[in-house]
Amino acid sequence: MTEFETPKRAVVFAYHNVGVRCLKVLLAGGVDVALVVTHEDSAGENIWFESVISLCQAEGIPYITPADAKSPQLLAQVRAAKPDLMFSFYYRHMLPAALLDVAPAFNMHGSLLPEFRGRAPVNWAVLHGATVTGASLHEMTVKPDAGAIVAQMDVPILPDDTAHEVFGKVQVAAEQALWRVLPSLLAGTAPRLRNDLSKGGYFGGRTPEDGRIDWRQPAQQVYNLHRAVAPPYPGAFTELDGVRYVIQRARLAGNVVGLSRPAGLAVVDNRIFGVCGDGRMLTISSLTADGVAISAAQLQSRLAAAA
């Protein structure tokens, strides 16, 4: 952009770390952010991400926190901002057609589209044993994650990465993807690549109950579940005699087999294991019982009492 060109105006829907980082990219790229639409920071939520509101306050950017993305008031405010472009960076609400008609809109999604469309893409990728994921900037349509792809950046998922660790990589990938494509996006020359919806799949949101372990499954699947929901997520859990045991840290125990032990929690040589359906085990280095850390000796005593 030359000194005689008028900066592009944008309305940005943003939340979470990706919202903060991508909003910073727009500002660094000379975009006039006329309005940010975000969510109130909740003190009762397990917040382990940065605050979009704090960034707006620091940068003097007008922001609003509407409860309903379909409200006529929000539509009027977005129209009044007269944006050339709109962006959605991990905003939690779907944008209705009336909003999408205001200006060309682009969404940052935490996967390599068309893979893992929908909610919690990083968690689903880890759960399914994917070895690569990334971030995709795409055109927004009424159908979620269905528009043409504008930019992508991939990151590896290492064998022992948790979803939290992978999300840190995806956050950087989102920033890089937006930074690289922003000049051409502002110039109107950004590519539009096909988002082939015959590939990949759509996934819904996850709840803490989805972390329940089925020890009959192969060890790799159980381990993937642990990695997908490990803290700061609620964690993979199992229940015994009304007590909920949550795995905090674990590793796949190589080629060690469970020596014909029944599937479930076990203590061997003062170490905690999770025996799985294929006879392989998880080595559990940190376990809680109803929220309190439990030692191998304590668990062994409880298992003996329940036998």
Rank of each mutant, 00 (worst) to 15 (best):
A69E: 09
Y63A: 03
A263R: 12
D160F: 11
V166Q: 04
A97Q: 15
K70R: 13
S198G: 13
G279C: 06
N123S: 13
Y15I: 02
N107F: 08
D278W: 06
K143Y: 07
D214Y: 10
A58V: 00
K143R: 15
V142K: 04
A219M: 11
A253H: 14
P144S: 08
R194Q: 13
G235A: 01
F167C: 00
V20M: 11
V33A: 09
R280Q: 09
G200Q: 06
G279Q: 02
Q298S: 13
D84Y: 02
T238M: 11
R227C: 14
V37N: 04
P218G: 04
P156K: 07
V222T: 10
A14Y: 07
L252P: 08
R79K: 15
P262E: 12
G168H: 10
T133W: 04
P191R: 03
D161I: 07
S42H: 14
Q152Y: 08
L127I: 10
M281I: 02
T238F: 03
V20P: 03
W48M: 00
K169L: 15
I61Q: 01
A97R: 14
V52G: 01
A105P: 03
Q152F: 12
I294A: 09
A236E: 01
A80D: 14
S198C: 02
A146E: 01
D101S: 13
G204H: 13
A69C: 07
A253C: 08
S285M: 00
P208S: 08
R249F: 13
A228P: 09
L112H: 03
A177D: 04
S111E: 04
L26K: 07
T141C: 03
L99N: 01
F237S: 06
L127S: 05
A43T: 12
D214A: 11
P62C: 10
H164S: 15
I294N: 06
R249N: 14
V267E: 05
E40L: 11
Q176F: 05
D32G: 08
L75W: 02
D196V: 09
P234H: 11
G264H: 07
S301I: 02
N224C: 08
G110I: 00
D160M: 10
L225W: 06
P208A: 04
L282Q: 06
A28N: 12
Q73I: 11
A230K: 03
P83G: 09
G60F: 11
Y15C: 07
L55I: 09
S54T: 14
E59V: 03
R206H: 02
A98Y: 01
E175H: 12
A43H: 12
S285A: 03
V268E: 14
G44P: 00
D154C: 01
P114S: 10
A306E: 06
L27T: 00
C22Y: 04
T6N: 07
V257Q: 12
V172E: 11
T6H: 07
G147K: 01
V246E: 10
Q57K: 15
G204M: 13
E59D: 05
I247D: 05
A97N: 01
P83E: 08
E45F: 15
G274E: 01
A97D: 14
V268K: 06
L282W: 06
A135M: 02
L95H: 05
R251W: 13
D161F: 13
V33T: 04
A103N: 05
I149C: 03
K169E: 08
D269P: 00
I149N: 02
L240T: 02
S286L: 14
